[in-house]
Amino acid sequence: MKRFALAALAATFLTLPAHAQWKPDKPINIIVPWAAGGSTDQVTRVVAPILEEALDAQIVVVNQPGASGSIGTKAALDAPRDGYTWTANAIANNATYAVTGLIEDTSIEDYRIYLHVANVPVVSVHADSEYQDFGELLEAMRTGDAVTVGTAGVNSSGGMALAAIKEAAGDINARMVSYDGGNPAAIAAASGEVVATTQLAVEQTEMIRGGRLRPLAVLSDEPLTVEGLDPIPPITEWLPDMHIAADYFGILIPTGAPQEVYDAVDKAWAEHVANSEELQTYARERGAVFDPAYGEEALAKAMPVIRAEACARVERGEAVVDPSEIGIDCKAAE
């Protein structure tokens, strides 16, 4: 009798459905809230095919630029939380939109984070510019007429980089000119429409290789080495006390979807994205840092830049919401 009961119990467990991996039954949309060709767009289009294969799903990258990336980001937040609408960005942007009032009542806790690379801004000028190094450009900003600087907007990596330079350098006369994305901003500098750009290295490397832009400094405390280019000197050669934090980029899936969605993407990230030769090649050739992570590890890596950007908004008088209201402690940065 006992043997029969055990057999029946075993049979019951065998008939229970095993936990199945999520199998998307329609296309997944990744909203890139910037124009085509920029840093977020570039790397997302490298990662999307990797995830397509891993998830056996169609992934569509949709560009929806405007308002420093907040329009497309809000569209992702407002979409049904069914796991089929994601977004992509520099993580600090999504964490600080509420601080600047671009998106109300949001924080980094609204997403599960998947990081792939860290990017660095580069200060560049037209290849025929009179400025041979960053020190000469900085002197012009301090003593001459306003130097125009192309960025993708105040909340973009280039906009934040320019603000950080102003904060570190003190009284300088630099006027930001905003474009719909990092690529148009870099093109504006390459064409001479603006004097300089502070957009990311990945948005400039092809124009640097092509002899259209001259890089002057990277916002780092170490030189930037990009395959096929001379090392770009660190900005700390001229601004030694400038605070530097790695600018992490990734894909963000709004919370509230079925747990199987996040489980499946976690698995794909660990097994495929973290080992991707295509992504490593992209980083090496474009001047990015290959550094995949997801979940709590990703948040821990991104928090220094999240905290730095949010608290800098307060210091510059740009904040409409105190960072502490969305869980960012500025005292921890002191």
Rank of each mutant, 00 (worst) to 15 (best):
L216Y: 03
A308D: 14
A268Y: 06
K331P: 00
R316C: 00
S156Q: 11
T85W: 10
P49H: 07
T85K: 04
Q42M: 11
V47E: 11
D110R: 11
V305S: 12
P49W: 09
T40S: 14
G182E: 05
G256Q: 04
Y114C: 01
G72D: 08
P292S: 03
P184T: 00
E309N: 07
L224Q: 11
F4M: 12
E193F: 05
D78Y: 02
R212F: 07
T281D: 15
P17D: 07
A98W: 03
F249Q: 00
T12G: 08
P231A: 03
I113H: 11
G101L: 09
I244R: 02
V202E: 14
A7D: 10
D128E: 13
A98H: 06
S191L: 15
A90F: 15
L16N: 02
Y179Q: 09
G37M: 09
R214F: 01
V177Q: 04
V62I: 14
V314L: 12
M207D: 06
G83C: 06
F13S: 05
P49V: 03
M242K: 01
M176S: 12
D56A: 11
M303I: 09
G101A: 05
P223W: 09
A264P: 05
L102T: 02
V320Y: 02
T255E: 09
G83S: 06
G37R: 12
P254N: 00
T197S: 15
G295D: 13
L115E: 10
G287S: 10
G228K: 13
A152M: 05
L162C: 05
S324R: 12
P292M: 07
A310D: 07
H272K: 13
A95P: 13
T151R: 06
L239E: 04
Y248L: 12
A302N: 06
R316K: 09
A95R: 02
L115F: 12
I253P: 01
A190N: 08
T40W: 04
A54N: 06
A185N: 08
T255L: 00
